[in-house]
Simulated assay, not measured.
Amino acid sequence: MKKLGIIGGLGPMATAYFMRRIIEMTDAATDQDNIEMVIYNSPSIPDRTGYILDNTKESPLPKIIDLANRLELQDVDYIAIPCITAHYFHQQIAKSVDVPVSNGIREAADYLSEHGIKKVGIMATDGTVSTRLFDSVFMDYGIQCVYPDWEYQKLVMSIIYDEVKAGKPVSMKEFELVKNQLLASGAEVVILGCTELSIAKRDNHIEGVLDIIDVLARDCVMKCAKLRPEYKELIKEGK
């Protein structure tokens, strides 16, 4: 059994749900069969999108690297960051430690490629969208990314910041508007490319999406323990 380190708090609810998904996905018959985790829930880390869009703001990278170094000192075998916008810094974080760091975007690309999916819709933060984080990896797999129109992207950001981060219920009418616009643009599946959006799937029945928290959790379980067979597939059929 391997030990997992988590750099969390980005945001706190997504981190709590990430831990829950790891436990649910682990093929464990006893407490002792579960993965040992060291979790830093650090919501004081500066906003990732804020910095990406305006480099004069405080960078979240030094704090993230500090936590990665602390986790390494605690002998973790694998590190995960349940925040996709923070994957903008993945290369620097991975170079700062000798412990492997999960890459949720690459894991998603691997999964989609295995299932023959060639065009996906992306629901994510402005930081992730503006830097084309998914495109930078998916192009190597021949997967095309489509994004919401400007007015729909505003709805995505409102769901993330005004609802999930504020502890309010997700407006599913707006969520479905964005999802349907991406499907109408030819997307075969819609990626919930921000871990805050995973809360919408936690609380509602949503089909035709790939939840990035599920991708990250599945990867961590497969690296550190044994995956329950029912989580081999992550996409519920339908739209």
Rank of each mutant, 00 (worst) to 15 (best):
L4H: 03
G8A: 08
G9D: 05
M13N: 12
M13Q: 13
A14H: 07
A16P: 02
F18Y: 14
E24D: 14
A28P: 06
Q32M: 12
V38Y: 08
N41R: 06
P43Q: 06
P46I: 04
D47H: 09
D47K: 11
I52A: 07
I52F: 02
S59H: 09
P60L: 04
N69V: 11
E72R: 11
V76I: 04
A80P: 02
I81L: 04
I81H: 00
P82H: 08
P82K: 07
H90L: 14
A94C: 05
V97K: 01
R106K: 15
R106S: 10
E107S: 13
A108S: 13
A108P: 01
A109F: 08
G116F: 04
M123T: 01
A124N: 06
A124M: 03
D126T: 14
S130D: 14
S130A: 15
L133C: 07
L133N: 08
F134D: 05
S136G: 14
V137W: 10
V146A: 06
Y147G: 06
P148A: 02
E151L: 14
E151D: 15
K154N: 15
V156E: 03
M157F: 08
S158C: 14
I159G: 07
Y161P: 07
G167R: 11
P169Q: 11
F175R: 08
E176S: 12
E176F: 15
A187D: 09
V189Y: 02
G193W: 01
T195Y: 04
T195H: 02
K201F: 00
K201W: 00
R202Q: 14
H205K: 15
H205D: 15
I206K: 05
I206G: 02
G208M: 03
I212N: 03
I213D: 06
R218G: 00
D219G: 02
C220N: 12
K223M: 11
K223A: 12
K223F: 02
C224Q: 04
A225Y: 02
K226M: 11
K226Y: 05
P229R: 05
E230W: 01
